[in-house]
């Protein structure tokens, strides 16, 4: 048990050291993108992994967060520091409204409606040209300076600086999700997933707990989208493409759904892998799709999380098993 905080601290130290060790800006870029995906994918794990609802609208929440933040920046000159919470809040609210309609349905209808919703949002981003500039997208988004009390204002546009912003956000998101799933709310998530009739008979509303996961997940996705928009400096309707939700699902499923650590690592690995496989880009998606099918069929616990639990000391494994 004592090993856990030490290991966690060491991992954080190692992650903090990344810009000091990795001078290749291209790899730093990939680390930053990974961090953004970690935040989004943690949110997806709450919905898919903990309450067991397959939402295909998650990439749309990510894109909507990116757009909200970008529009606030372009139209109202709000910096990212205001845009990010605003995006999380607004998209969380949209998820609340959407959820109040679709979380009452269960099963296949839910899944299909989430895709339909995502496509509809893409059409809005494409066709509401006066607001979103349609396919032209919104360029020129900037990273604001960061003001830290006692230190003053620092420029964080450099990758080695922005990395720490994303790292901090990812750690906060992780701790938030961990606190949530370890709370009584989190236990009810799992109960809803494992046995909905039983949960209902105990007075636990599947609707309410699915809703909590859905809204928090959407807000996280939106926050990630906001970071991404300002980092890349540009948003366009392509962010709504189905391929984003697929890759996020691959991160969660192969990472090991319902474990938080697994999906987070999945996000890092499946950001780097496609880039390292650039040469074989035609085969890349075929390989991923095959892995997704095989893993879903034969390795329901995913690949990455079981691998870690196998590698780390036993006492940690026990604790995690209990947490999950």
């Amino acid at each position: 048990m004592r090993g856990l905080p030490v290991a966690a601290a060491l991992i954080v130290v190692a992650l903090c050291a990344v810009p000091l060790v990795v001078h290749d800006e291209y790899f730093l870029h990939l680390f930053i993108v990974s961090g953004v995906f970690v935040i989004a994918v943690l949110g997806l794990d709450l919905i898919v992994g903990y309450v067991g609802q397959l939402s295909l609208a998650h990439a749309a929440f990510f894109a909507m967060g990116a757009y909200t933040s970008a529009l606030l920046f372009v139209r109202l000159k709000w910096s990212m520091w205001a845009g990010l919470p605003a995006a999380a809040l607004l998209v969380g609210l949209i998820a609340l409204v959407l959820g109040s309609v679709i979380l009452r349905t269960r099963g296949h209808r839910f899944i299909i409606i989430t895709v339909v919703f995502a496509e509809l949002m893409k059409l809005v981003a494409t066709n509401w040209v006066d607001m979103t500039r349609g396919f032209m997208g919104l360029p020129g988004l900037a990273v604001p300076p960061l003001w830290i009390p006692g230190i003053g204002t620092i420029d964080i546009t450099a990758k080695s600086h922005f990395y720490y912003v994303v790292l901090f956000a990812a750690i906060v998101a992780f701790l938030l999700c961990r606190a949530l799933v370890r709370s009584s709310v989190g236990h009810k998530f799992v109960l809803v997933r494992e046995n909905e009739p039983l949960a209902e008979s105990l007075g636990i509303s599947a609707f309410r707990y699915s809703m909590i996961a859905f809204v928090v997940g959407a807000a996280l996705a939106a926050a990630a989208g906001s970071l991404y928009a300002h980092y890349v400096g540009f948003v366009s309707p392509d962010l709504f493409n189905f391929s984003y939700v697929t890759i996020m699902l691959i991160m969660v499923i192969l990472g090991g759904k319902g474990t938080l650590v697994g999906p987070a690592l999945g996000a890092v690995i499946f950001t780097f892998l496609p880039e390292l496989l650039r040469e074989a880009s035609h085969w890349r998606m075929i390989v991923f799709a095959t892995i997704l099918i095989v893993a879903t069929l034969f390795m329901p616990k995913g690949i990455i999380f079981p691998l870690i639990t196998h590698l780390v000391p036993r006492n940690w494994r026990l604790r995690n098993a209990r947490a999950a």
């Binding site: 296949h108 899944i111 699902l249 499923i253 998606m285 799709a289 997704l292 099918i293 879903t296 069929l297």
Partner: peptide
């Protein structure tokens, strides 16, 4: 349902 849906999504990417 989660399994069946994910598998068919995987299959659609594979075939495409």
């Amino acid at each position: 349902m989660m399994t069946t849906t994910l598998v068919t999504i995987g299959l659609s990417i594979l075939l495409e």
